[in-house]
Design a protein around this nucleic acid. Structure first.
Length: 253
DNA sequence: ATGGTTGGAAGCCAA
């Protein structure tokens, strides 16, 4: 037996309610991470799922839907009491800490937004190091807004000037991996041009000019349990889609 | 080389 956990930046739950319901009934994941719910509260999505969320008016917002109840542990990333952006949700599920993140975009580079992304990453690394030190198994999923390497985007030279692939940001991503974590998708698929996000503009989707920025990272004992990790491109092709498509990870029970 | 699109909000900002 195995569990399947999915993650999807829906770019507004309200605007994507029917897509969400279609995805849930087709895929039936045990857990679904949502990012950019774009509301203070979460509307009823499915009676089959329990929901915990951290919402915010207009921007951001993260939610976890689960077929079994989960216990909220943290609804904010520690380390900055003044940070009011809803981007972090940590829950206990089946003796695993599930961490849903909507990492800051960071554009434009050389602005306060870029600094916020760097600071957020530093706080995040600190939190993960705490969990590691406490020997707590964890699985991180979400919209990282980080391109790990050249083959995860259509034109590396262009993207290096963007906060999604800025060398300073990529270095932080490597620091996260160096805590002993694994990019679950790359365990099963080494193909380039496999993306999770395509801009609404300039025909990015039909031309497959995308980026792989949505990820699942696993701590060592969860890495040992990995069965598969796939990107489901179908929802990106639906009418009035989110600009992101879901990623799904499967682990043994 | 530039601009193109979408969602949420009621201005434009964020992506």
């Amino acid at each position: 037996m195995s569990y399947r956990i999915a993650s999807w930046n829906v770019n507004s739950v309200k605007a994507r309610l029917s897509h969400l319901q279609t995805f849930l009934s087709k895929t039936i994941p045990d857990v679904l991470f949502l990012q950019e719910i774009k509301g203070e509260t979460l509307p009823e999505i499915s009676v089959e799922y329990h929901a915990v969320y951290k919402g915010q008016k207009t921007y951001n917002g993260v939610a976890i839907l689960s077929r079994i109840p989960v216990s909220p542990i943290l609804q904010n990333l520690p380390g900055d009491d003044l940070d009011e952006q809803a981007r972090y949700l940590e829950v206990e599920w089946q003796n695993i800490r599930l961490i849903n993140i909507y990492l800051p975009n960071g554009n434009p580079v050389e602005t306060e937004k870029f600094n916020y992304k760097i600071n957020w990453l530093n706080r995040f690394i600190k939190r993960l190091d705490e969990l590691r030190g406490a020997r707590i198994p964890f699985l991180i999923g979400g919209d990282f807004n980080i391109i790990p390497e050249d083959k995860d985007c259509y034109d590396p030279e262009i993207w290096k000037k963007d906060a999604l692939y800025h060398p300073e940001i990529v270095k932080k991503f490597r620091s996260i991996l160096n805590l002993g974590l694994t990019d679950a998708f790359r365990v099963f698929n080494s193909a380039p041009e496999t993306y999770t996000f395509w801009d609404y503009q300039a025909g990015a989707w039909p031309r497959n000019r995308g980026v792989r920025i949505d990820h699942f990272l696993t701590s060592p004992t969860i890495t040992d349990r990995l069965i598969n990790c796939t990107i489901d491109k179908t929802p990106r092709g639906w009418d009035t889609p989110s600009d992101h498509t879901p990623i799904i990870v499967e682990i043994s029970e």
